[in-house]
């Protein structure tokens, strides 16, 4: 009995066809599983390991290496603030500090309602449109504190799914 949705399992089937070695699908499978479950649960890890005929240890080794993969829940909206050099020069740290205030959490914190989590991240490739924030996979660029508030409000009120 799979813990993943039929759609995701279909996606896994398709992924496994792409590579001569099943293990190659590990990172995408983990990321897509996380997208569906919010984080990599022990059950998800077990199932993916079995599916790839790899040990759970091998999966844990991989999870630990990649910064986007997590084994603890994040908020429904994971706010990732870039403070790397280009964003730094355009106020990335102010944006990050503001997020802390607004959301009432520290780096890696999750709001009590589980809606938001906050993370300071490395360069997300929005240097020429800095400062930038990624919420889940959505980019929000050329931000100011005021624009950021609007963005967060949109997520809070369901304006962005």
């Amino acid at each position: 009995m799979s813990i993943f949705s039929p759609q995701l399992n279909t996606r896994f089937d398709e992924l496994l066809k792409r590579y001569p070695v099943p293990r190659s699908a590990m990172v995408p499978m983990l990321l897509y599983a996380q997208d569906e479950l919010g984080y990599l649960t022990p059950e998800a890890i077990r199932e993916i390991a079995a599916r790839l005929d790899e040990s759970e240890l091998a999966v844990h080794e991989v999870i630990g290496y990649y910064s986007m993969l997590r084994t603890k829940p994040a908020g429904r909206f994971h706010v990732q603030v870039c403070t790397n050099i280009s964003c730094l020069l355009r106020g990335g740290e102010e944006i990050f500090e503001h997020c802390k205030q607004r959301l009432g959490v520290n780096n890696h914190g999750v709001t009590p309602d589980g809606l938001f989590s906050l993370e300071e991240v490395e360069c997300i490739g929005a240097c020429s449109w800095a400062p930038a924030v990624q919420v889940n996979y959505d980019f929000h660029e050329n931000l100011t504190v005021a624009k950021l508030d609007q963005v967060l409000d949109k997520y809070r009120t369901g304006g962005v799914q």
Binding site: E56, L57, A58, H60, E61, G64, Y65
Partner: peptide, 20 residues
């Protein structure tokens, strides 16, 4: 046996056992 691996990365890298 493959019971030991490496977890995390960078300066947080750590040897990990197979049952967490």
């Amino acid at each position: 046996v493959w019971a030991l691996g490496v977890g995390n990365r960078g300066v947080s890298s750590v040897i990990i056992p197979n049952k967490q």
